[in-house]
Design a protein around this nucleic acid. Structure first.
Lengths: 256, 256
DNA sequence: CAGTGGTCTAGACCACGTG
DNA sequence: ACGTGGTCTAGACCACTGC
């Protein structure tokens, strides 16, 4: 299986020397691996071929494949396990489950969580939603609303939008039966792997409806988190607006 | 200069085979580089010796030094510049200036910022401050309070604690004259490089004093950010409690 | 024991920055 | 022209996993 769109690889080839668009071999390999991931050649949780096999397939040395995989592992798209192989990252594993959930109790153990679906309907996208999801204006989106509780206490109110064309057949009923992270469901049911997200955070006053759903007085300070999640190729696949009650919880973050 | 506390390096040495504490060579090199950084052998902004020189100094191959530096660069402790060398990271450079400032305007250009020092005094540390800074109870700390304005609008109220023993001679006067990020001042005046930080974020109601200083009504929702900053060796060196006005700004974050 | 990723080496050559 | 980091290769050996 000759995937050969690589640059000229003859021994002394100047590899686009001095050219504006010089791309190292391992970056090209990384791109090919990304394509395979995107096209679903290897599914989340599965092992990809060994470094040795990939080196043969791409006609490069093992070290070059290794460097490509290194970068994908650093970006959490792949997971290396010594002695076993390299695996496609998934939101379905204990180790990385709730990867994107940064809300933590001020003290004590991570609590038991439960989800209550408020709504799940297909609507025409509003302009701001369409823009953030890179859709045409008024294209159909799935709008999903839910309340997450920790130890029975309502704590997060989520308002979620998904591209309707991709998330066909997502209904309140199927969601009600489901246990576990949404992102795991997206992977297994819709083939959408969330790989990265950007968040914008503010402090806001609780309006009437959020106050009622979170069982706090109107005007209560809430953390407002707007998240856009991306799949392979930096394609936005989810817009999520969350309101977090931070009386006994905080949003943790690490700066490097 | 023989830095030789490395493991047995004779050709076929089993390098602590099967032992509980097996540490690869490049990790040992990384540790030695960290020590040199901590002890100030190379100052922020300066170049460290070339990979070739370091390889000779540590008696390992260039590739091994390279891998050690790779990790330090990934952690933002070092900065590689092709053709020039490898440099000690600093908060004094345009590229990484305000590395830890995550507050961004909702729209438009990054604003002009100004700082007003409210207070700078040496006090006995409260128990919670002592604990977070890893100090003995009641040890002296510097308490610094300031208001940061963006485009003349008061936006951040910072309450900062620093270990008194390290930050001798830090006064309101010296601060008033200073322009630029505090972390840059800490580097050049006190030899303290902040390398990493952990934050806990909540939404809170503005109390009387913060409301007055930020010129908003009492009860206004504010983002409360508690940050502990660490220098080399994960030693906590600053506790900062910030209140951010997020009406026209947001805290941005990336999830991977 | 075989297969996987992890470490280490040595050497060649390229790209970048500076004289 | 030289020195720096960046890429690529080839090969040896180690550590971990599972049969």
């Amino acid at each position: 299986m000759p995937d050969i769109p690589l640059s000229d690889r003859s021994p002394g080839a100047p590899r686009a020397a001095g050219s504006a668009a010089f791309s190292p071999l391992y970056q090209q390999i990384k791109g090919l691996l990304l394509q395979s991931l995107d096209r679903g050649e290897w599914k989340p949780g599965e092992a990809i071929p060994s470094e040795f096999d990939l080196a043969a397939r791409f006609q490069v040395s093992q070290g070059t494949v290794r460097k490509a995989i290194d970068e994908l592992a650093a970006e959490n798209l792949l997971l290396r396990r010594q002695g076993k192989g390299t695996f496609v990252a998934t939101h379905n594993e204990a180790r990385v489950r709730y990867r994107f959930l940064r809300l933590t109790p001020d003290e004590g153990r991570p609590p038991v969580s439960g989800s209550r679906i408020l709504e799940c309907r297909r609507v025409k996208s509003a302009p701001d939603v369409a823009r953030l999801l890179d859709l045409r204006m008024s294209e159909t989106v799935v709008n999903l609303r839910r309340v997450l509780s920790f130890d029975q206490v309502p704590t997060i109110l989520d308002d979620i939008w998904l591209p309707g064309a991709v998330f066909r057949g997502l209904t309140a009923e199927s969601l009600a039966r489901y246990r576990g992270p949404l992102y795991a469901l997206f992977e297994s049911e819709f083939g959408v792997s969330m790989v990265r997200a950007e968040e914008k955070i503010k402090a806001v006053r609780a309006g009437a409806e959020p106050a009622e759903l979170l069982q706090v007085p109107e005007g209560e300070p809430l953390l407002q988190v707007e998240r856009v999640s991306y799949t392979y190729g930096d394609r936005p696949m989810e817009l999520r607006r969350g309101l977090y009650l931070t009386e006994h919880f905080h949003y943790r973050n690490s700066l490097n």
